[in-house]
Computed example of a mutant assay.
Amino acid sequence: MFNRKNLARLAGVGAAASMALGLFSTGAANADTFIPLPGGEITKTLSDGTVVTVRLVGESATISPSMGATPIHRNAWASASAQVEIAGGEKVGGKIYPGYVVGCQVNIDGGGAEGGASADIDGSSGEVSPSGEVGGDLTLGPGQAKSFYVLDIEKPDDYGDEDHATNNKFKGNSGSVTWSDQTIGVNGCGGYAQARSFVRVKVETDQVMSVVTLWGQPFSLG
């Protein structure tokens, strides 16, 4: 049975709980924030009938207060696994190019798995095309977006000189790349910042060579 004393007591408990939540929220603002992401999947049939399926699984990001400790700095770590399956072809193989697009005060949410990002960095198509840049330490101003590849594999070229590859090459009907705690650092962005993963796959058969691109879900860097 509720009376005035009970109601007052409940009001006091509610106020204390609100204060506690406020304290927890303040602490959370200074802690890492884990973001689970849905990944994605796309299937494309090539002109010779070969079926290519690209998946992005186990995707997540951890947003951390920047070591720069200013509003223009962002810092995150991203993890995921890119998986490719090929059916219906002979003597097939391919290359997997995983990476991220990062934007400052710009919409990088495209229209579907092949839609890309609706920000112009190449001055032509209005889409952010994956570039050859490697490494996630980027300097961005408002309205800018850049892309980078996750992999930087050192290997000798045909002449024995040092070469760097941004892809994982595979032979046969399947291949994969897994990365953990890939750094995404943004400097110079005074507004909101976002990032979005992509997996670009070049597939080659006896009859055709094609590119399939899967885009992940955009996530906020703060």
Rank of each mutant, 00 (worst) to 15 (best):
G115L: 08
K169A: 14
D152S: 13
N168L: 14
R74G: 01
G99L: 12
L151Y: 02
V102L: 00
K169F: 01
G94W: 00
D120H: 02
I96V: 06
Y159A: 11
N173C: 12
I96L: 08
N167T: 02
L138G: 05
N167C: 07
Y97K: 08
G93S: 02
P156K: 15
A113M: 05
Y97Q: 09
G88V: 01
F170V: 06
P142T: 08
G68R: 01
V128D: 04
A113I: 01
G58I: 01
N107V: 14
D158H: 09
A145E: 04
D161T: 09
T178K: 07
N168E: 15
A145T: 06
P156N: 14
S147Q: 10
G132K: 00
D120F: 01
P65H: 01
S147L: 12
K169Y: 00
P98I: 11
A145V: 09
V57I: 15
T139C: 00
N75P: 00
I63M: 07
K146T: 05
H73P: 04
A119K: 02
S174K: 10
S124Q: 12
G136L: 08
P98T: 10
Q144T: 12
G68P: 01
N107H: 05
W179V: 03
S129V: 15
F148R: 09
D137K: 13
V54W: 10
E162M: 15
S125Q: 10
K169Q: 13
A76R: 01
V84C: 11
G135A: 02
T70E: 06
